[in-house]
């Protein structure tokens, strides 16, 4: 009995130590990790989606508070007007888990401007075929009012054969972005303008 008690005690102490160390480290580093992800993952993707933007969408990024957390929104500002915005949403139901998708929306035409995948755990060479820019360009010009879905589910987008689940998770991510922007459009625009105003730029 004594031996069992000792085993339980020691393993508990070790696990408690592990949990404290990792919890502390994660809290301490989470800001820095988010910064690095901005720089090495989202940065290049935003630059690709927003080539030719007259402003710098990365430094004009706002953190839009929503429910418990916040969502980073990158604006394309031209002649003082917010013409396009890009934001990340996770699409549910990929083969290896959720797929995070960066969707750029054109606010003037109310259409999708571009789509890129930022994070995923899909099988290289199989699921990743649904992430190639050629395939993702199918999303361009879709109206954000429409329900964005795969054709199998009664929507507009073809799935990549053999990568249906990856395709459907991406469609889900895009559709979440469209729904989010439709629902919060005014307050998003206001936050971007506030940030521009506070920096002394004319919005």
């Amino acid at each position: 009995m004594n031996e069992i008690a000792k085993m339980v005690l020691v393993t508990t102490i070790i696990c408690a130590f592990a949990a404290t160390l990792l919890g502390g480290l994660r809290n301490g580093l989470s800001d820095r990790i988010a910064q690095q992800e901005d720089f090495f993952v989202r940065g290049p993707i935003i630059e690709e989606l927003f080539t030719g933007a007259p402003n710098d969408p990365l430094s004009d990024k706002i953190e839009f508070g929503y429910q418990d957390g916040s969502i980073g929104i990158y604006p394309w500002i031209e002649d003082g007007k917010i013409r396009r915005i890009a934001l990340e949403q996770s699409g549910r139901g990929g083969y290896g888990g959720d797929i995070t998708v960066m969707t750029a929306l054109d606010l003037e035409s109310n259409r999708i401007f571009g789509v890129r995948v930022t994070q995923h755990k899909e099988t290289p060479g199989v699921g990743t075929r649904a992430m190639e820019p050629d395939y993702l360009s199918n999303y361009r010009k879709l109206l954000i009012k429409d329900d964005i879905k795969l054709k199998n589910d009664g929507g507009q987008i073809d799935a990549v054969s053999g990568a249906t689940r990856s395709s459907s998770a991406i469609a889900d991510g895009v559709s979440r972005a469209a729904i989010f922007v439709n629902a919060n459009r005014e307050s998003i625009l206001k936050s971007i303008q506030e940030k521009q105003g506070s920096r002394g730029n004319r919005p």
């Binding site: 160390l21 990792l22 480290l25 994660r26 580093l29 820095r32 990790i33 690095q36 992800e37 720089f39 090495f40």
Partner: peptide
Amino acid sequence: VAVELLMQAYFY
């Protein structure tokens, strides 16, 4: 996991 977090933070 500690190494993984440190790498993400400093050697992305």
